[in-house]
């Protein structure tokens, strides 16, 4: 794979308007050299999947702080698969209780969940590692 910028869609599905975290992460990823597209607020799962397709992204990062993650995340994963985007890395950030996070990952609905206290660096490092491994495989 050529040396190109990683493309990331940062999305805010659902109704909650808590966008502090999503904007900080978007900026952190951009400053780390990634190409970042931010959807803005109040996106439906369909809108998220469509934007991911149109923008041809490598990574989708979802921010959910409303407690609706167990509904929204599996729905978006399903729509990504339907749109032939099953290889896109799906990350989630927000207020996600540990049991829910384990379940989302075990069921294959998300690749990794980041929660309060995780640094920007830990997120960028995770994405870079994944991208490198993908390029090598």
């Amino acid at each position: 794979m050529e040396d190109r910028k990683i493309r990331v869609l940062v999305a805010k599905p659902g109704l909650d308007g808590h966008d502090r975290g999503v904007k900080v992460v978007a900026r952190g990823l951009r400053d780390a050299g990634m190409e970042v597209i931010y959807t803005g607020l109040h996106q439906t799962p369909q809108q998220v999947a469509e934007t991911a397709l149109q923008e041809d992204v490598d990574v989708v990062g979802l921010s959910v702080l409303s407690g609706a993650h167990m509904t929204l995340v599996p729905k978006i994963k399903e729509l990504l698969i339907e749109n032939d985007l099953k290889d896109v890395l799906l990350l989630v950030g927000g207020i996600v209780p540990e049991d829910d996070a384990k379940k989302l990952m075990a069921d294959g609905h998300a690749d990794r969940i980041f929660t309060p206290g995780d640094s920007i660096d830990s997120i960028t490092a995770y994405i870079f590692d994944w991208f490198k491994q993908k390029a090598e495989s």
């Binding site: 109704l15 909650d16 409303s66 609706a68 167990m70 509904t71």
Partner: peptide, 18 residues
């Protein structure tokens, strides 16, 4: 809850899971 804050009833599509 979020649907109430955003003016949606509980039976709206937008309220699913919230």
């Amino acid at each position: 809850d979020m649907p109430t804050l955003m003016g949606y009833d509980s039976d709206s599509d937008r309220s699913l899971g919230e």
